[in-house]
């Protein structure tokens, strides 16, 4: 891992979903919290796990496993939610766990491999080569942009 004061270094909040490491730009992350009292939304797209009240705001919680086409877990009690804001709306991304904040240099960032699963590729803004594992940089805007009809068409960027 290469760390310097270079402008090409960014901080990322890391999270694990189905044993895969993801990174989110720290500037985009508002909160990390345990989802409590999730209200399901009838007729909502399957990605939407429900809505909840976080300090008086209503957040739409999106299950990243469903959004990325990963196997779904029934029990989300130990899960964490990462609070994100997009266009004035509050969202929560449901992940398995949240790890440390990493400072990473753009030098170790690569484009998506061509054979990356289309659903993952659709949500990835690039891959960081860390020691021992790869971290997918989550394209937050694209993850939040979906509707029931067009489910992550997946463009290998």
């Amino acid at each position: 891992m290469h760390i310097s004061d270079n402008e090409d270094v960014h901080e990322y909040v890391t999270a694990v979903v189905d044993r895969q490491l993801f990174g989110l730009p720290i500037a985009r992350v508002q909160d990390v919290f345990v989802p409590a009292r999730l209200t399901r939304v009838p007729l909502a797209p399957p990605e939407v796990a429900g809505v909840l009240n976080l300090r008086g705001r209503i957040l739409t919680v999106i299950d990243l496993r469903r959004r990325l086409g990963l196997p779904v877990r029934a029990n989300i009690a130990s899960d964490r939610t990462i609070g994100i804001e997009l266009a004035g709306e509050a969202y929560g991304l449901l992940v398995d766990s949240v790890g440390e904040v990493m400072r990473l240099s753009d030098a170790i960032r690569a484009v998506n491999p061509a054979n990356l699963d289309p659903r993952l590729a659709g949500a990835s803004a690039g891959v960081y080569r860390l020691e021992g594992e790869l971290m997918i940089l989550l394209d937050v805007d694209r993850v939040l942009h979906f509707d029931g009809a067009t489910k992550a068409a997946g463009t290998a960027a």
Partner: peptide, 27 residues
């Protein structure tokens, strides 16, 4: 009345959501 999130606005049977006195969100 709080408007639905843009991802959920296509659900015509729901006009919004709200937070009740006990803190829970309902449609």
């Amino acid at each position: 009345v709080k408007p639905m999130s843009p991802n959920l606005r296509h659900i015509t049977m729901l006009s919004g959501n709200t937070i009740l006195g006990d803190g829970s969100v309902i449609m």
